[in-house]
Design a binder for these strands. Sequence first.
DNA 1: CTGTTATGTCAGAAATAACAGACGTTCCTG
DNA 2: CAGGAACGTCTGTTATTTCTGACATAACAG
Lengths: 167, 167
Amino acid sequence: MHWGNLGGQWGVNRSVAQIHALLYLSDKPLHAEVIAETLGIARSNVSNSLKELTGWNLIRRVPISGDRRDHFVAETDLWEMVTRIAAGRKEREIDPAIAALRVCAAQAEDDPAVGAVARRRLKAMLDFTQTMEGWYAQMLHVPHATLAKLIRLGSRIVRYLPVKPEA
Amino acid sequence: MHWGNLGGQWGVNRSVAQIHALLYLSDKPLHAEVIAETLGIARSNVSNSLKELTGWNLIRRVPISGDRRDHFVAETDLWEMVTRIAAGRKEREIDPAIAALRVCAAQAEDDPAVGAVARRRLKAMLDFTQTMEGWYAQMLHVPHATLAKLIRLGSRIVRYLPVKPEA
DNA sequence: CTGTTATGTCAGAAATAACAGACGTTCCTG
DNA sequence: CAGGAACGTCTGTTATTTCTGACATAACAG
């Protein structure tokens, strides 16, 4: 239930988040009808939600021999889970946003009606976003175990920095 | 406009995001009425949105001498901006979620009706979340300039780590 | 081929969120 | 103290999202 509500605040609808939570906690693959009655929502809703979760790569179909129904399991590795969510959000939202920002910044460059300050801020935003995007792209290729170590290091990471790297 | 739409997908309503964008690009403090007519929305809506943005610490009131109206400016340092957004989201959403998760995990511990797998997964989720929370808390105290260096390093950071840090 | 079971699709109902306009309050001015 | 200006709040309306139930399609069994 909590997972469902939380989802709502992040632009994921409640049913989708609830189904995800249910599958995450389930020790065996579930099919649509069981999910629908467990959560008390319509099967059609489950069907659509499962499709969305599949689109995010957070669940996958598993065949159960002797049962025609589609069964689903959730990815249970949490690092993998956040990686996939991040990948989805980036692709659907961040990338188009950067593209739009690039267009804005370029147009502002030529438009005398746009003040110097606005131009500068657009540029700053674009630079920042692109820096973050680059960081993300690189971190994506770091193995999860290494990432976990980095995270656990916390701010002690700073100690290992070369002194004043490239000023 | 783009900023506004993007906001919608992240649980921030359009007006709020649009006003934020407008203030971010403006070179001078603006008051409610100017914002309302610029964006074509009702002043009451602007009033509420300004309150919300203030609650997130993304804008602040600045007094203009000889003018009774409240004028607002946005935080323009992008590092500061993301820090504040992160702080707000954590406080309002992540912290309650962790609290709920803790309760769930604790109850599951004593409840024989909860399977071993579900118990284990709840525990894993809680551990993961707490690890991330700890990391966030530490990173919060790292100066922006240092953070920026870390980000620009990207995955090259791995090179500087002591080999196999604490296994 | 026919009946059965599962899944997908769609239109409209229900719920929720966003918004505008009216009203009330406060604060300032003369 | 009266008048005016800015701001906040509240209520009803509009728009959007979410969800459901009915129907359509596909896969399979006998």
